[in-house]
Nucleic acid binder design. Structure first.
Lengths: 130, 130
DNA sequence: GTATGTACTTACGAATAGTAAGCAAGGCCA
DNA sequence: TGGCCTTGCTTACTATTCGTAAGTACATAC
């Protein structure tokens, strides 16, 4: 076994998430980002306008909502449709790939909500032990 | 409908991830953080020492590795065992809850690696369209 | 004609992450 | 006896990212 004779493009295509410069790192960063997760979860429930997302994703700023949507759109997970009217009307929805991603994210989110009591107990126990 | 008549503790226990002050937000932040994801994936492969993690999780700094491990330990996902020897010897492993979390994370990571070509294509198509 | 709503963008201060150096304490080599 | 090596952190400083607040364009409502 020699050290990787395979070209960069192959390594990249395989998607070695643990490697520093793998592009999958970027995609993961977008999907698993604080707001990316919540946006995907909300969009799994159907198409939403910008301001609807802003209201549902409690605490997100317009700045980060816009930026995160642009990331996800750039990765092909979210589709943006803008109607040329005034005031502006823009609709965001998941692409088929986005729906797959959202499914995984929601599974994790559901698990966290179910396990939250256990996790809080662990935190409390740790705090008490000190 | 008035503003939430239910007590804070109820809201909290239900684990409403979309709500601003839900503690599940913090847990999600730890698990889905840039390095949290990768650490969980590596630890799913078995117990590791600090320096082993540092080598496998390409690009992580000692600072962030230590901090993320402390988060995950605080949430009860990671167990830390320190042997009182010199030079120090510390082993990190997943707790049962941590193994559940890691399973979800790895499912997402595997999906990303499989779908990466599609995502790259989407990015390229978008770039070409401009 | 003032206020409101939409979907952003921009400027700026605050929080967070990355870089690099330091530290403890025992073993090894000379 | 004195350096230097090791590991698992912590600390100081810097760079990057993020949140807050304000601005924009135009139409409709009051």
């Amino acid at each position: 076994m020699e050290k990787s004779p395979e070209p960069f493009s192959t390594r990249v295509r395989r998607g070695a998430l643990l490697e520093r410069n793998c592009p999958s790192r970027e995609v993961l960063k977008h999907i698993s980002s604080q707001w990316g997760v919540l946006i995907l979860i909300v969009l799994e429930g159907g198409t939403h306008r910008f301001s609807e997302l802003r209201r549902k994703v409690d605490g997100v700023s317009e700045r980060m909502l816009a930026q995160t949507l642009q990331w996800l759109e750039g990765d092909g997970l979210v589709e943006r449709i803008a109607y040329p009217v005034v005031p502006p009307h823009v609709e965001y929805s998941l692409t088929p790939i986005g729906r797959e991603a959202a499914g995984h994210i929601r599974a994790l989110a559901d698990w966290i909500e179910v396990r939250l009591p256990d996790i809080c107990d662990a935190q409390a126990a740790r705090a008490a032990a000190e």
